[in-house]
Simulated scan of single mutants.
Amino acid sequence: MYDAVEALEGRQFDVVYTGKGALCYLPDFAQWADVVHQLLKPGGSLYIVEFHPLLNAMGSVALPGDTDDLIIRNDYLEGRGAIAHDTTVTYTGDQIPGRQRSFEWMHSLGEVVTTLAATGFQITRLRESEVLQWPRFNGMHQTPKGWWRLPDEAPRIPLLYALLATKSD
């Protein structure tokens, strides 16, 4: 990703979009923002739809006899480096042979907005949403539109966000 400007031979675009689950694989968010800025034409738009960083900080209570209440399990803020995950399933739920180690980096909403603004983007819209496309936590229920949300009695927390920014120079 960091070599995209060279790989695309300096071409510029009207829109750059990044979808759910992409930003956590970027160790250097500021470098990525600079690359995206170079890929956009003046007045071009960056559109991000991403899992809310609070989602990755939350986890179900996992001790015997505990409830399905959510608690903070991981950092919300950036700055401590990568979080290592050892697993036998992919992020899509497919089984893989043996254990696989992957790494993710936290990028708080504050880091995202501040870095984009410092890179030369004007943030025109930021929306947080309480729905996901799959049931991440126990007790989630499906909406009539096919999304998943926490039960009505649970606190309303953001699970996704959408951000629209324009290249201002």
Rank of each mutant, 00 (worst) to 15 (best):
R11C: 08
Q12F: 02
Q12K: 15
Q12W: 02
F13N: 09
D14C: 04
V16C: 09
V16T: 03
Y17L: 07
K20M: 12
K20N: 13
K20R: 14
G21M: 12
G21T: 12
L23Q: 01
L23E: 02
C24E: 02
C24G: 01
C24R: 01
C24I: 06
Y25L: 06
L26G: 02
P27F: 05
P27D: 11
F29S: 06
F29H: 05
Q31P: 00
W32Y: 15
W32A: 15
W32L: 10
A33I: 08
A33W: 04
D34F: 06
D34P: 00
V35D: 04
V35M: 07
H37D: 03
L39P: 06
L39M: 08
L40M: 08
L40P: 04
K41Y: 01
K41M: 09
P42G: 07
G43Y: 02
G43N: 00
L46A: 03
L46Y: 05
L46I: 04
V49C: 10
V49M: 10
V49Y: 08
F51G: 14
P53I: 08
M58N: 09
G59M: 10
S60P: 13
S60M: 15
A62P: 00
P64E: 11
G65V: 00
L70W: 03
L70G: 03
R73A: 13
N74C: 06
D75T: 10
D75L: 11
D75P: 08
Y76D: 09
E78I: 03
G81V: 12
H85S: 14
H85E: 14
H85M: 12
D86M: 10
T88P: 00
V89N: 02
T90M: 03
G93Q: 04
G93T: 05
D94V: 06
D94L: 10
Q95D: 11
Q95R: 12
Q95T: 10
I96G: 04
I96R: 13
P97D: 14
P97H: 07
Q100W: 04
Q100T: 10
Q100S: 09
S102Y: 01
S102N: 08
E104G: 01
E104I: 05
E104P: 03
W105H: 04
H107D: 06
S108G: 13
S108P: 02
L109R: 04
E111W: 00
V112K: 02
V113G: 02
T115R: 08
T115K: 08
L116F: 08
A117M: 13
G120F: 04
Q122C: 05
Q122A: 11
I123E: 05
R125G: 12
R125T: 11
L126T: 13
L126W: 10
R127I: 14
E128I: 09
S129G: 03
E130Q: 12
E130R: 10
V131M: 03
Q133H: 11
Q133D: 14
P135H: 02
R136A: 14
R136E: 15
R136C: 09
H141V: 14
H141N: 13
Q142C: 15
Q142E: 15
Q142D: 07
T143N: 13
P144K: 09
K145C: 00
G146Y: 01
G146M: 01
W147P: 01
W148V: 00
W148Q: 00
L150F: 03
P151L: 07
P151T: 07
E153R: 13
A154Y: 15
R156F: 02
